[in-house]
Design a protein around this nucleic acid. Structure first.
Length: 186
DNA sequence: GTTCTAGAAC
DNA sequence: GTTCTAGAAC
């Protein structure tokens, strides 16, 4: 039986070619705006090379160079915003839905109409989200990063909602979104 | 990944 | 009655 994740899982391959979403690029990777941003700033960094997921990265010379480049582009796009780098989270989803390796660069306001579900929240605010430094270090050390157990990923995405900046426990997403506004500084 | 929507939760 | 979540989508 062949896997069929559906054509939607290929959508990034089109978006990364669309000038409307492009922010900056280099010879080997491109930074785009996420089509459904989960915060005020939400970028994706994708290599042109057809690397489907983070689990396809190896400690080859080519991939080590690519990983450095992805981190450099993350730094560069943060500079483009003019904001302090410490408000950004940079990392990979441990169980990605979309094809083509993509590194998330997201601001920690999480103030966006596209942030709607518990899964959205937990995918950035639990161990489902893997910091780029951890992932690249693991690949350099181990030659690859291992896929997590699907049941554990599922549990992480079902984690009880909790504010990432204080110990507030919202009872639902609307309450969380309202609460997040209280952490925004102008 | 999103959209849609049934029915649970309130 | 309305809000909210969560599962199907061929």
């Amino acid at each position: 039986m062949t896997k069929n994740k559906g054509s939607w899982s290929l959508a990034l391959l089109e978006t990364m070619k669309d000038p409307l979403y492009r922010v900056i690029s280099s010879e080997i990777a491109v930074v785009i705006k996420d089509k459904f941003p989960k915060a005020k700033y939400h970028f994706l960094i994708l290599p042109y090379e057809d690397i489907p997921t983070v689990f396809h990265l190896t400690s080859s010379e080519r991939h080590l160079k690519l990983m450095d480049e992805l981190e450099l582009l993350a730094k560069n796009v943060v500079e483009v915003t003019g904001l302090n780098s410490n408000i950004f989270q940079v990392g990979y989803h441990s169980s990605p839905s979309m094809q083509r390796l993509h590194l998330h660069v997201i601001s920690n306001d999480y103030n966006s109409p596209c942030l709607k579900t518990k899964i959205h929240w937990n995918s950035f605010n639990t161990k489902f989200f893997w910091d780029v430094k951890y992932v690249h270090k693991e690949i350099r050390r181990n030659g690859k990063v291992n896929k997590p157990n699907p049941d554990i990923s599922k549990q992480l995405l079902a984690t009880e909602l909790r504010c990432h900046k204080c110990d507030f426990r919202p009872k639902n997403m609307p309450e969380l979104k309202q609460h997040l506004l209280s952490h925004i500084t102008c």
